[in-house]
């Protein structure tokens, strides 16, 4: 996703001289093309994320469209107050790019996990929050939003290969993407963990359970119409996110269910406890938190045994 995102950014930067890229000393083998092509519009600011966002604020006030880049928690949590008082409050076109959203840096421990980035940003009304599901969508999402007013957060995955087949890279601001059209259960997935939702769907199909997958790649503004319209056809909804269950997608869907008086039961698949210090592959950590396709399918099967499915 990172390659596609920055390849697209390079194309856009050829068209618009306002695009500027800042990194807090991360992005080896990811930012070189931009840096080599536009050396005057690229800056490694050093390991100083707060200053990076402050600099971006000053640059944006003067008309630039600065992108800040580092690993998700460093891009959001360390400079959070700078993001809030700077680009959000001033409504400036700063783009915060966080790589490895979720637990992609699975062996690096909690410091590198982006499992609360959406939660802390979602409370801020003045920032667009995007969570592309695959590299194709990372590219289309950037093309659709790079020059919108106000700040944007792009939560990127390191996965440059996998695609969500039926999605075809489609992205629309304020909309969700829907794939599969099963009638038994609605799985709502946040960004790149959609791949696990797809695996769960394949497993469930073998057991005669048919799912619809709704991909939320635009968290703010939330795709409320799509969510309400789709959820109203289901009795049972499962949210899947590489994020704490509080503050992220599960919270968003809960809010929508209550605000719109929907009558569906819901299970949140996400991270429920502070990580316990055990490291491993992403799949291993996903499994610990019930986020593999197999674990998601298991939860759904257990639930479905106990309810009458269709509305």
């Amino acid at each position: 996703m990172r390659k596609a995102f920055f390849n697209t950014l390079v194309e856009l930067a050829h068209q618009d001289e306002r695009i500027f890229l800042l990194t807090a000393d991360l992005g080896y083998m990811a930012l070189e093309t931009f840096a080599d092509t536009f050396p005057k519009r690229f800056l490694n600011v050093g390991v100083a994320e707060q200053n990076m966002v402050g600099l971006a604020t000053g640059l944006a006030e003067a008309g630039y469209i600065p992108f800040t880049y580092t690993i998700a928690p460093f891009s959001v949590l360390r400079p959070y107050e700078f993001i809030r008082n700077g680009p959000i409050y001033h409504q400036l076109s700063v783009r915060i790019v966080g790589i490895g959203g979720g637990i992609e840096y699975s062996k690096d421990g909690i410091a590198h996990y982006g499992i609360d980035d959406i939660g802390v940003l979602r409370v801020q009304p003045g920032i667009t929050i995007l969570t592309p599901a695959d590299y194709e969508q990372a590219s289309t999402a950037l093309s659709a939003t790079w020059n919108i007013p106000g700040p944007v957060y792009y939560r990127l995955s390191k996965d440059d290969k996998s695609v969500v087949k039926e999605m075809n890279g489609h992205f629309e601001l304020g909309r969700a993407q829907i794939i599969d059209k099963g009638k038994d259960v609605l799985i709502i997935a946040l960004g790149s963990i959609t791949h696990e939702a797809v695996k769960a769907t394949d497993i469930l199909r073998q057991h005669g359970i048919f799912s619809t997958i709704m991909i939320v790649s635009c968290v703010s503004p939330p795709p409320i119409h799509d969510i309400v319209d789709t959820m109203s056809r289901f009795k049972f909804v499962v949210t899947v996110e590489a994020h704490y269950i509080i503050g992220g997608l599960g919270s968003l869907i809960s809010e929508i269910i209550v605000e719109h008086g929907l009558s569906c039961s819901m299970i949140k698949c996400g991270i429920r406890n502070t990580p316990n210090g055990v490291c491993g592959s992403q799949n291993f950590i996903y499994d610990m938190h019930g986020l593999t396709g197999e674990r998601i399918a298991e939860v759904i099967r257990n639930k479905i045994d106990n309810i009458s499915l269709r509305k």
């Binding site: 707060q50 402050g54 000053g58 006030e61 003067a62 107050e81 008082n85 700077g86 001033h90």
Partner: peptide
């Protein structure tokens, strides 16, 4: 620039100075 939280203003100013130089 809006301020009120100490330790932020100089980063805004450094960005503004960098922009002036680039322009």
């Amino acid at each position: 620039f809006s301020t009120g939280s100490l330790g932020m203003g100089l980063s805004f100013g450094a960005g503004a100075a960098l922009a002036a130089r680039l322009q």
